[in-house]
């Protein structure tokens, strides 16, 4: 996809998502309509991601599945990537640190969840509701656009590093 066309498609996608976000932000919560609309947008994002991934798949195949795997097109060996030269012990320590931080986050959520009143022990959902609740339409619509855009990322393969 050439840059001007890519910009047009991205702009159209953004405007569509903003319109969807504004629409869903005005819907009553706990309704069938809001659930159906949210799942429909999620399905559309997955479809867009699949189409975009298919458009890039040819380049991906040339790099990964070509007969000269491990070499550049001119035959020179590919230099080791940043991951290959990373300090293994530092990687392990980093992963453990991330796991501990996430476990702390989950522990706080469970601690708050099983204590009342909610005004004193807020869960993550109740905190988010203060900012993105039904009364905050603009913030809710903006969050919807961000959420939908994240769907394009999480459902696609990462591009191979150069």
């Amino acid at each position: 996809m050439n840059p001007p066309r890519s910009a047009v498609v991205s702009g159209a996608l953004f405007i569509s998502l903003a319109a969807c976000g504004w629409f869903v932000a005005g819907m009553a919560p706990f309704g069938v309509e809001s659930s159906a609309f949210t799942f429909s947008v999620a399905a559309a994002m997955l479809a867009v991601s699949a189409v975009a991934g298919h458009a890039h798949s040819q380049a991906f195949d040339l790099r990964v599945r070509g007969p000269n795997l491990g070499r550049r097109r001119d035959g020179a060996p590919v230099p080791p990537s940043a991951d290959a030269s990373a300090d293994t012990s530092l990687v392990e320590r980093g992963v453990v640190a991330w796991l501990l931080a996430v476990l702390l986050f989950v522990a706080v959520e469970l601690w708050e969840l099983f204590h009342v009143p909610r005004s004193t022990y807020p869960t993550l959902s109740s905190l988010v509701n203060e900012v993105l609740g039904p009364g905050h339409r603009v913030a809710r619509a903006a969050a919807f656009v961000c959420w939908a855009a994240c769907g394009l990322i999480v459902s696609s393969r990462p591009f191979p590093s150069r």
């Binding site: 030269s85 980093g94 640190a97 702390l104 706080v108 807020p122 993550l124």
Partner: peptide
């Protein structure tokens, strides 16, 4: 509203991210 625990949990995640960027190669 008690948000101290949430600030601690968010701080732990933030420290991990900052450490990964300060230490450079290795820490993800």
């Amino acid at each position: 509203m008690n948000v101290v625990l949430w600030l601690v949990a968010a701080g732990a995640l933030g420290i991990c991210e900052v450490a990964s960027r300060r230490l450079g190669r290795g820490w993800p």
